[in-house]
């Protein structure tokens, strides 16, 4: 197979990888915050349930979770799952990453001194005003390095979508490598993931610098 043909096929896969990456971030970052708030709720039943959920999501392989999300509508309800492949990948990834992000948010929220809540309370802020205006901006600064770690992992984890035979880049690379007995697609993949993550690190570093004004 000619190199440029291979590259074109891989490039199509890259688009899929980037799509998984972007959609997962868009959904899991806000979802993670909601999960964190549930986890920290005074309601014991809610926080216990969320705690269990996080524990299961972090304690089982993402690949397994993807398979469960993809197949459960069929096995549980007998529904057709055609057209569900891509949404299932996004749902699976988003839920899994939300669990990790939730724990990062929680660590950040707990790292903000109690005095910040009390000062805001004395100044007349409501709970939600305090959270949005005083606590969250400080949390973001605290958790940014940990978030960067997760995002870098996510770039590489997109390759797990091959378990649902989705045509992201790594799935294609494996097919080409097998059918043409060549090692080249793996090298291209490696370069792709590495450059992607360089970019991620660069962008996140920029955010960190922007927040280092205090």
């Amino acid at each position: 197979m000619a190199f440029d043909v291979m590259l074109r096929q891989l490039a199509e896969g890259m688009l899929g990888s980037v799509l998984i990456f972007a959609l997962t971030l868009i959904f899991s970052l806000p979802l993670g915050l909601l999960v964190a708030l549930g986890r920290m709720s005074k309601n014991k039943i809610l926080s216990g349930f969320i705690g269990l959920l996080i524990s299961v999501l972090r304690g089982t392989p993402l690949m397994l979770q993807l398979l469960v999300v993809y197949f459960f509508p069929y096995y549980l309800f007998g529904w057709s799952i055609s057209g569900w492949r891509f949404p299932a990948i996004i749902v699976g990834f988003s839920i899994n990453y939300a669990a990790y992000f939730a724990e990062i948010y929680r660590s950040g929220i707990e790292a903000v001194p109690k005095g910040q809540w009390e000062a805001a309370q004395i100044l007349g802020y409501s709970k939600s005003q305090t959270f949005m205006r005083i606590i969250l901006p400080q949390v973001i600064k605290i958790i940014l390095p940990a978030i960067t770690n997760e995002i870098i992992t996510l770039v590489k984890d997109t390759s797990l979508a091959f378990s649902l035979s989705y045509m992201e880049m790594f799935t294609i690379a494996k097919q080409i490598a097998a059918s043409n007995t060549t090692f080249t697609p793996f090298v291209v993949s490696a370069v792709f993931y590495y450059v992607f993550n360089l970019l991620v690190a660069f962008v996140m570093r920029h955010f960190e610098k922007k927040l280092s004004y205090y």
Binding site: P113, G115, Q116, E118, A119, I122, L123, G124, Y125, Q129, R133, I134, P137, Q138, K141, Y214
Partner: peptide
């Protein structure tokens, strides 16, 4: 109330610390 540990908002400038509550609350 003035606290022992000040509890100023670290992410806001001196002026913004003072005007935050009158403006937003």
């Amino acid at each position: 109330l003035v606290f022992q540990n000040f509890n100023l908002f670290p992410h806001k400038s001196v002026l913004n610390n003072i005007i935050e509550a009158p403006v937003h609350v």
